[in-house]
């Protein structure tokens, strides 16, 4: 498995990767909590971007409702924790099948009845909106008034219950991101990964060769949904409060696809690089505005819009394919 992981990667790339990982592991010892929080945000978006990328980047199915799976994961694990005292790691085992099952329902409706392209994207938005309205009236988890996890000042990190300092959350989300990267790498180089790419590039042609497109698209949706729900569990335990209007809002769905689009759809490093660029730059801009004493509501959205425009015009494949060529690393897209 390790051999498969590193095959096709240049020596230079491996060294860079190892240095980067060492740097990321050591960084919390040198920076303050604010910067750690920014890093957490970066890896959060890198992780959900990676999960979304399985559906869109690998299998070519555009989802604009991925906030649905984040929300399901968040509410499932939070409800288990608050109502039954079940910890987040067990909560994840519940969140994955819940999100995966709803993903399968959406996938089945779409792929069985030939809903594709833009119409598929609209269907994913619709389900996310259903969830938003539904959870607004779901009293058991607080409805529109919000759902709260008990918060206290923690002096020690309780990893089992995900209660603790930012640095602990940082290592958790870093671990998620690294695991997601490895899983995506293996998936993309697997037999199924090639089927996905064939479907993405030309579905009728893939079907003409005897690839069961329905089945592989379903698998992509379920894996992507399940993986995304883990981000939801993290979200719930990191922020400790959940409001349907926020969690399931369409801007959440859009936000999480920006990183892979800017970094490079269908690439492995794209979502990570995109998250670094977007979150890093937007936080920097926020700080600068703050220092200047300017408070512009919506500045972040405008900034995202500008980033998106620049990338689409200048580097339509995303930043990573361009950067990797410049650095002489190999990742064909």
């Amino acid at each position: 498995m390790i051999a498969r992981l590193i095959e096709g990667t240049s020596r230079r790339g491996l060294v860079l990767l190892a240095l980067l990982l060492a740097f990321l592991i050591l960084i919390p010892f040198f920076v303050n909590d604010y910067l750690i929080t920014v890093l957490i945000l970066i890896f959060y978006f890198a992780f959900v971007g990676q999960a979304w990328n399985i559906m869109m980047g690998f299998a070519g199915q555009l989802s604009l409702g991925h906030a649905l799976y984040v929300g399901l994961g968040a509410y499932t694990s939070a409800a288990l924790y608050v109502h039954f005292g079940v910890g987040p790691w067990i909560g994840m085992l519940a969140a994955i099948p819940v999100a995966g099952a709803l993903g399968a329902v959406i996938g089945f409706l779409a792929f069985r009845f030939g809903v594709s392209g833009v119409y598929f994207a609209i269907l994913t938005i619709a389900f996310c909106e259903f969830a938003r309205v539904g959870f607004d009236h779901f009293r058991w988890v607080g409805g529109s008034a919000g759902f709260f996890l008990p918060v206290a000042q923690y002096s020690v990190n309780d990893l089992w219950n995900l209660r603790g300092k930012p640095s602990m959350f940082y290592y958790v989300i870093l671990g998620f991101t690294v695991a997601a990267f490895i899983i995506c790498h293996l998936l993309l180089r697997s037999r199924m990964g090639y089927f996905w790419q064939a479907i993405r590039e030309d579905e009728p042609a893939a079907r003409a060769l005897g690839i069961n497109a329905f089945r592989y698209k379903m698998i992509a949706v379920v894996i992507s949904a399940g993986m995304t729900s883990l981000a939801g569990v993290f979200f719930a335990f990191f922020y400790n409060n959940l409001f349907p209007e926020q969690v399931f809002h369409i801007s959440r769905s859009i936000e999480m696809i920006l990183a892979p689009i800017i970094g490079g759809v269908g690439t492995l490093f794209g979502p990570i690089l995109g998250a670094v660029i977007l979150t890093g730059l937007s936080e920097t801009m926020h700080e600068i505005l703050h220092l200047l004493g300017v408070d512009v509501p919506g500045a972040k959205a405008v900034f995202y819009g500008i980033c998106l425009l620049v990338v689409i015009v200048a580097l339509p494949d995303g930043v990573w394919p361009w950067l990797s060529r410049r650095l002489g690393l190999s990742e064909r897209k």
């Binding site: 037999r191 090639y194 089927f195 790419q197 064939a198 590039e201 030309d202 009728p204 042609a205 893939a206 003409a208 060769l209 005897g210 690839i211 064909r332 897209k333």
Partner: peptide
């Protein structure tokens, strides 16, 4: 029963060899 679909439907970003492999999955 095979078909060569209309409009040369090769998979553009896969390599020639990968395209050929895709033909032999059944």
């Amino acid at each position: 029963i095979g078909q060569v679909a209309e409009g040369r439907q090769v998979f553009p970003s896969l390599s020639v060899m990968e395209n050929l492999e895709m033909g032999a999955v059944i």
